[in-house]
Measured scan of single mutants.
Amino acid sequence: KQVQVGDEKYTFDTPEEARKFAEKVAKEKNLKVTEKNGNFHVE
């Protein structure tokens, strides 16, 4: 599963790991997490 933050992409083995990372980054940057096709976008 992938997490996209701006132009950066991070790959994780499980959706749970990806979601945790996305939520942590979103909180730090005051952004929101959206899920698209099983991948997460922080925007």
Results as ranks from 00 to 15, higher is better:
Thr14Glu: 06
Arg19Trp: 09
Ala26Asp: 03
Lys20Trp: 10
Val33Ser: 02
Val42Ser: 03
Asp7Tyr: 11
Arg19Lys: 11
Val42Met: 06
Lys9Asp: 05
Lys32Asn: 09
Gln2Trp: 15
Tyr10Val: 04
Lys24Phe: 10
Glu28Arg: 06
Lys36Arg: 13
Glu35Ile: 15
Glu17Cys: 08
Phe21Cys: 04
Phe40Ala: 03
Lys1Pro: 15
Glu23Gln: 09
Lys29His: 14
Val3Trp: 01
Gln4Trp: 15
Val5Gln: 02
Lys20Gln: 13
Thr34Lys: 08
Lys27Ile: 11
Val5Arg: 02
Asp7Val: 09
Phe21Asp: 01
Ala26Phe: 02
Val25Ser: 04
Phe12Ser: 00
Phe40Ser: 03
Asn39Asp: 09
Ala22Leu: 04
Phe40Thr: 03
Ala26Leu: 03
Asn39His: 12
Glu16Cys: 08
Glu8Trp: 11
Asn37Val: 03
Phe40Ile: 08
Pro15Lys: 13
Ala22Gln: 00
Glu17His: 04
Lys29Ser: 11
Glu17Arg: 03
Glu35Asn: 09
Lys20Ala: 14
Val5Leu: 07
Lys36Thr: 09
Asn39Pro: 03
Glu16Phe: 06
Gln4Tyr: 15
His41Asp: 05
Ala18Ser: 02
Ala18Asn: 00
Asn30Lys: 08
Glu35His: 08
Asn30Thr: 04
Lys29Asn: 14
Lys27Phe: 12
Glu43Trp: 11
Lys36Glu: 09
Ala26Met: 03
Val33Ala: 05
Asn39Cys: 13
Lys1His: 15
Glu17Phe: 01
Gly6Arg: 05
Asp7Ser: 12
Val5Thr: 03
Ala18Gly: 01
Glu17Val: 03
Gln2Gly: 07
Val33Cys: 07
Glu16Val: 05
Asp13Lys: 10
Ala26Trp: 03
Leu31Ser: 08
Gly6Glu: 06
Leu31Ile: 05
Glu8Gln: 14
Lys29Trp: 13
Asp13His: 08
Val33Phe: 09
Asn37Arg: 03
Asp13Tyr: 07
Lys9Glu: 08
Glu43Gly: 14
Ala18Gln: 01
Glu35Gly: 04
Glu28Met: 07
Val25Tyr: 09
Lys24Pro: 00
Ala22Val: 04
Asn30Ile: 03
Thr14Cys: 05
Asn39Ile: 15
Asp7Met: 12
Asp13Asn: 12
Lys20Ser: 12
Gln2Ser: 13
Gln2Thr: 15
Lys24Ile: 08
Asp7Asn: 13
Phe40Val: 04
Glu43Pro: 05
Gly6Ile: 06
Arg19Met: 08
Thr11Tyr: 15
Val25Pro: 00
Tyr10Ser: 01
Val5Glu: 02
Asn37Ala: 06
Glu16Gly: 06
Glu16Met: 06
Lys29Glu: 08
Glu8Arg: 14
Gln2Pro: 03
Glu43Leu: 11
Val5Met: 07
Glu17Gln: 09
Lys1Leu: 13
Tyr10Pro: 01
Ala26Glu: 04
Gln4His: 15
Glu35Lys: 08
Val42Gln: 02
Glu28Gly: 06
Glu17Lys: 04
Lys29Gln: 14
Glu43Asp: 12
Tyr10Met: 04
Lys32Met: 11
Glu28Thr: 06
His41Ile: 15
Glu8Gly: 05
Gln4Ser: 11
Glu23Ile: 09
Lys20Phe: 10
Thr14Pro: 00
Lys9Pro: 04
Lys20Thr: 12
Val25Trp: 08
Thr14Val: 04
Phe21Ala: 02
Val5Ile: 13
Val33Gly: 02
Val25Gly: 00
Phe12Ala: 01
Phe12Met: 01
Asn30His: 09
Lys36Tyr: 12
Ala22Asn: 00
Pro15Met: 14
Gly38Tyr: 03
Glu43Ala: 11
Thr14Lys: 05
Val5Asn: 02
Lys24Leu: 11
Pro15Phe: 13
Ala22Pro: 00
Asp7Ile: 10
Lys1Phe: 15
Phe21Glu: 01
Glu16His: 06
Leu31Val: 08
Val5Trp: 10
Lys9Phe: 14
Asn37Lys: 05
Glu43Tyr: 13
Glu43Phe: 12
Lys20Pro: 00
Val5Gly: 01
Phe21Trp: 08
Val33Asp: 04
Asp7Leu: 12
Lys36Val: 14
Glu17Thr: 04
Glu8Ser: 11
Asn37Thr: 04
Glu23Lys: 05
Gly38Cys: 02
Thr34Gln: 07
Tyr10Gly: 02
Gly38Met: 04
Lys29Arg: 13
Val25His: 05
Asn37Ile: 02
Thr34Phe: 14
Leu31Tyr: 10
Gly6Asp: 07
Lys20Cys: 08
Glu8Ala: 12
Ala22Glu: 00
Lys32Gly: 07
Glu23Ala: 08
Thr14Asn: 10
Leu31Ala: 12
Phe21Tyr: 08
Ala26Thr: 03
Gly6Val: 05
Leu31Met: 15
Glu16Pro: 00
Lys36Ala: 09
Leu31Phe: 09
Leu31Lys: 05
Lys36Gln: 09
Glu8Phe: 13
Asp7Gly: 11
Glu35Phe: 14
Phe12Cys: 04
Val33Ile: 11
Ala18Asp: 01
Val3Phe: 02
Val25Leu: 12
Thr11Phe: 15
Lys1Thr: 15
Asp7Ala: 11
Glu43Cys: 07
Glu17Asn: 05
Gly38Arg: 00
Lys27Ala: 13
Gly38Thr: 03
Lys24Asn: 09
Val3Glu: 01
Leu31Arg: 05
Lys29Ile: 06
Phe21Gly: 00
Glu8Val: 14
Phe40Asn: 02
Leu31Gly: 14
Phe12Glu: 00
Lys29Gly: 11
Lys1Gln: 10
Val42Phe: 07
Asn30Pro: 03
Lys24Gln: 12
Phe40Lys: 02
Phe40Asp: 03
Pro15Trp: 14
Thr14His: 06
Val33Pro: 03
Val33Leu: 09
Phe40Glu: 03
Ala22Ser: 03
Lys20Val: 11
Glu43Arg: 07
Asn30Ser: 08
Lys29Thr: 10
Lys32Tyr: 10
Thr14Gln: 05
Val42Gly: 03
Lys20Arg: 13
Phe12Val: 00
Lys9Tyr: 14
Glu16Ser: 07
Glu8Leu: 14
Glu28Cys: 08
Ala18Trp: 00
His41Met: 12
Ala22Tyr: 04
Val25Met: 10
Glu17Asp: 10
His41Thr: 13
Glu28His: 07
Asn37Pro: 00
Phe21Met: 01
Glu8Thr: 13
Phe21Gln: 01
Ala22Trp: 04
Thr14Ile: 04
Ala18Val: 01
Ala18Leu: 01
Lys27Ser: 12
Glu8Tyr: 13
Lys1Val: 15
Lys32Gln: 12
Pro15Arg: 15
Glu23Phe: 12
Glu28Ile: 08
Phe21Ile: 00
His41Ala: 08
Asp13Ile: 07
Asn39Leu: 13
Lys24Ala: 12
Glu16Thr: 06
Thr34Glu: 07
His41Gly: 05
Gln2Glu: 12
Lys27Glu: 11
Gln2Lys: 07
Asn37Gly: 11
Lys36Asn: 09
Arg19Gly: 03
Thr34Ala: 06
Thr11Arg: 08
Leu31Trp: 15
Lys9Asn: 10
Arg19Asn: 04
Leu31Cys: 09
Asp7Phe: 10
Val25Asn: 03
Phe40Met: 05
Glu8Asn: 12
Ala18Pro: 00
Glu16Leu: 06
Pro15Ala: 14
Thr34Tyr: 14
Ala22Ile: 04
Ala22Gly: 00
Glu43Val: 14
Glu17Met: 06
Asp7Glu: 11
Glu23Pro: 00
Tyr10Phe: 13
Asn39Arg: 09
Leu31Asp: 05
Val25Ala: 06
Gly6Thr: 02
Val5Pro: 01
Glu23Val: 07
Thr11Glu: 10
Lys9Ala: 09
Glu8Met: 14
Tyr10Thr: 02
Gln4Glu: 08
Val33Glu: 04
Glu28Phe: 05
Lys9Cys: 13
Lys20Leu: 13
Phe21Lys: 01
Val33Lys: 02
Tyr10Cys: 05
Thr14Trp: 03
Glu43Ile: 13
Lys32Phe: 11
Phe12Thr: 00
Gln4Ala: 07
Gly6Leu: 08
Ala18Met: 00
Lys32Val: 14
Asn30Arg: 06
Val33Thr: 03
Glu8Ile: 13
Lys9Arg: 13
Asp13Ser: 12
Asn39Ser: 13
Ala22Met: 04
Ala26Cys: 04
Val3Met: 01
Lys9Trp: 15
Lys29Ala: 11
Thr14Arg: 05
Gly6Pro: 01
Val42Tyr: 02
Asn39Thr: 14
Phe21Ser: 00
Val5Cys: 09
Lys27Gly: 09
Glu16Tyr: 06
Gln2Cys: 11
Gln2Asp: 09
Lys32Trp: 09
Pro15Gln: 13
Ala26Arg: 01
Arg19Pro: 00
Glu16Ala: 08
Phe40Arg: 02
Glu16Trp: 07
Thr34Trp: 10
Lys27Val: 09
Asp13Leu: 09
Lys1Cys: 13
Asn37Ser: 05
Pro15Glu: 14
Gln4Asn: 10
Glu35Thr: 09
Lys9Leu: 15
His41Tyr: 15
Lys27Pro: 01
Pro15Ile: 15
Val25Glu: 06
Lys24Gly: 08
Glu43Gln: 11
Asn37Asp: 14
Val3Leu: 01
Lys24Ser: 10
Gln4Lys: 07
Thr11Lys: 07
Lys24Val: 07
Gly6Tyr: 08
Ala18Tyr: 01
Thr11Asp: 10
Glu17Ser: 05
Lys24Met: 12
Val33Met: 07
Asn37Met: 06
Phe21Thr: 01
Thr14Met: 04
Thr14Phe: 05
